[in-house]
Design a binder for these strands. Structure first.
Length: 153
DNA sequence: GCCAACGTTGGC
DNA sequence: GCCAACGTTGGC
């Protein structure tokens, strides 16, 4: 099993929204590297840190799990969606893929980016590196453990 | 709201 | 194929 971290702006879709819905397609990703992780590497049952970006404070808000593997993101074909992609329509072929995730746990407190940055064992994560905007990234098993420990303290 | 850093687009 | 211009991300 692999571990991941996925970013979402809570104003758009938060851990509370996922808790309410139970599960949700992770639509709207329009970055090739992030798409490739979802399309090619995420497997049923993989665990995900649900990260709130553009939030106060930014940080990890809880845990989700892959409940359905890669399938086309329907919003690319929806004219009225802000994620509409005319190229996908023109070629009659999906460009963008998503996974579906289900709610697992909401942390009692946000594990803030500031706390994550202070932990030396996490220094290699793209998340804490300046200028990285990747919204779907792999998390190493050791990093996953480290973060869970931080959460408890 | 600002803006640095980055990814994408499109003219050449 | 280069690279300037543009749009987006996301912390602050």
């Amino acid at each position: 099993m692999k571990y991941w971290l996925m970013k979402s702006e809570p104003d758009v879709f938060s851990i509370d929204d996922l808790k309410k819905k139970g599960k949700s397609g992770w639509d709207g990703v329009r970055n090739y590297q992030a798409r490739n992780y979802m399309r090619d590497e995420m497997r049923l049952g993989d665990k995900i840190f649900f990260y709130h970006s553009n939030a106060t404070p930014p940080g990890i808000a809880g845990i989700a799990e892959v409940s359905k593997e890669s399938h086309p993101d329907p919003t690319q074909f929806e004219l009225k969606s802000e994620y509409f992609d005319p190229k996908a329509v023109k070629n009659k072929q999906a460009i963008w893929y998503m996974v579906e995730v289900k709610f697992v746990e909401k942390f009692s407190e946000i594990l803030s980016l500031e706390q994550l940055k202070q932990e030396k064992a996490l220094a290699a994560m793209p998340l804490v590196q300046k200028g990285t905007r990747l919204s779907v990234m792999p998390v190493k098993p050791e990093e996953w453990k480290t973060i869970l420990k931080l959460k408890k303290s």
